[in-house]
Design a protein around this nucleic acid. Structure first.
Length: 257
DNA sequence: ATGGCTACGATCCGTAGA
């Protein structure tokens, strides 16, 4: 199974690029974030024509997530059960025996802001949810935009970013609490080149300078991690005209798991 | 120099992203 995640920053604007990328990269499953679109306006028919069924948790203007799959999506659920939240950030489904949870974790805005407190509360709720999901589904993948750069090597300029939102210790601690559930960062299962990121600021020629952060991740439960043969970032879509500020992240997991 | 871009939904600016 080729599993991928991509924050498209508006499904409406990025649909042509998404369709092109699906045809070339041919993931089996793709987690999408920041649709910025309600479900009624989600391009379900266009994606179905391209060979992908979808499960959507949409929202107008902000947030919004979807799961795309070449094979049927079963047991679809939305949001984090028991966590009251107006923002549409989670959709999950079972695909080919793998439970896939697509997440768009809060940005946090700035350390100490109300949105930062919300981010930390949200991560605590996510941890509880994933603990329960792991009990039920040993073959669990959690993919999406986590808005956390786990280590300094995931940051283009750690000194400039020190203590800032996305790298602050409480955020990294929340990340490690997910890892402590028994989830593996698929990207770090392998030797990787240095300075690989998944997001670059639109401003300041961020992409050209490779001034980025690695904040989009695919977490795998231990049985899936053992079956994982590769994990990469595909920078190609970020080079196009009018790109998303995020690049897709992929993980290859052997089919028989 | 603490900005710089992009998307959205409201207008011709504010909110949000990271």
């Amino acid at each position: 199974m080729r599993l991928a995640t991509w924050n498209v920053n508006s499904i409406k604007v990025r649909l042509p690029q998404l369709l092109d990328w699906l045809a070339v990269a041919r993931p089996d499953v793709l987690c999408l974030q920041e649709l910025k679109t309600e479900e009624a306006k989600f391009p379900r028919a266009e994606l179905l024509a391209a060979g992908y069924a979808s499960a959507v948790n949409g929202q107008k203007t902000y947030n919004g997530v979807a799961l795309l799959s070449r094979t049927p999506l079963a047991e679809v659920t939305v949001d984090i059960p028991g966590f009251a939240d107006e923002q549409k950030r989670v959709v999950a489904a079972t695909i080919g025996g793998v439970r896939v949870v697509c997440v768009y974790c809060p940005n946090g805005q700035a350390v100490g802001a109300d949105k930062y407190q919300y981010k930390l509360r949200w991560f605590a709720a996510l941890r509880g949810y994933l603990a329960e999901q792991l009990q039920r589904h040993p073959h669990l993948a959690v993919a999406g935009d986590f808005n956390v750069a786990p280590e300094d090597r995931d940051v283009h300029d750690p000194k400039a970013w020190e203590g800032q939102v996305h790298v602050s210790e409480p955020e990294r601690s929340a990340w490690r609490a997910l890892i402590a559930l028994g989830l593996k960062d698929s990207f770090r299962l392998f030797e990787q080149p240095e300075r690989i990121y998944s997001w670059w600021d639109y401003r300041m020629l961020g992409f050209r300078r490779n001034a980025g952060l690695r904040i989009d991740h695919i977490l795998l439960s231990e049985p899936l991690a053992r079956a994982c043969s590769a994990s990469t970032v595909d920078r190609a879509p970020r080079k196009l005209e009018r790109p998303s500020d995020h690049a897709p992240v992929l993980a290859e997991v052997a089919a028989e798991t």
